[in-house]
Design a protein around this nucleic acid. Structure first.
Length: 204
DNA sequence: CGTGCGATTATCT
DNA sequence: GATAATCGCACGC
């Protein structure tokens, strides 16, 4: 199910479970927001100009973790999609903590600061990786292998309904509605784009 | 509550 | 040397 077109696969990851056992502490999230990124056909993708050292995992087997460093500050976690050799990935943008909330809270509490509200623990791609304890070392992990430190469990059934709209924080191909999220979920990240365009209702 | 801006660094040109 | 798939805080309404 991860082998198809990235913009068709992405919404099917809504409701999936992403779990980590970093430092032996389990934390699990229910995925509530994702974005699709393609290959040469997608000007906004890291893989738009072919393979490089950083984006190599985007060309790997579907279900591989692609982790990259963003804005000199944050790590972001993608699930590789599409046949091996062809670039494609789904960025996990936000999740709801369902297991290990104390550990997630610890990781997200700044030194000498207060913990964020529960709904903000994994609200946004940088916060999501921080809550899970995911970083560079997890780049290339097989997320479908039950022995991996970071694992993805696909939904048993596709969600009944989701919304879609433009991807956040990109300049090119801004017209593609390749951001997908669940309705009425407090953990969905705030839209930070400039236009205020709203997502449209979809079926399934 | 919404908008604006600076931080910080791996990666690529 | 420029850029970036972000975040948190400051400020104004």
């Amino acid at each position: 199910m991860l082998a198809g077109r990235v913009d068709e696969v992405a919404p099917r990851l809504l409701g999936a479970r992403i779990a980590s056992w970093v430092d032996t502490s389990p934390v699990a999230l229910r995925v509530v927001e994702v974005e699709a990124y393609g290959g040469e056909d997608d000007p906004a993708s890291h893989a738009c100009r072919g393979a490089t050292g950083r984006n190599l995992a985007m060309f790997a087997e579907p279900g591989t973790a692609y982790v990259y460093f963003s804005y000199g500050v944050h790590w972001c976690l993608n699930v590789t999609v599409g046949p091996a050799g062809r670039a494609g990935a789904v960025l996990l943008r936000a999740g709801e903590v369902v297991t290990g909330i104390e550990v997630a809270r610890d990781r997200r509490t700044p030194p000498s600061g207060r913990p964020p509200r529960d709904r903000d623990l994994a609200r946004g791609p940088g916060r999501l990786t921080q809550a899970l304890g995911v970083s560079r070392v997890h780049d290339g992990t097989d997320l479908l292998d039950g022995g991996s430190v970071v694992r993805l469990t696909l939904p048993d059934v596709a969600v009944a309904e989701y919304l879609c709209g433009p991807r956040v924080g990109i300049n090119r191909a801004a017209d593609r509605p390749w951001r997908f999220w669940l309705p009425d979920e407090p953990a969905v990240s705030a839209y930070r784009g400039g236009t205020g365009t709203r997502g449209e209702r979809s079926e399934r």
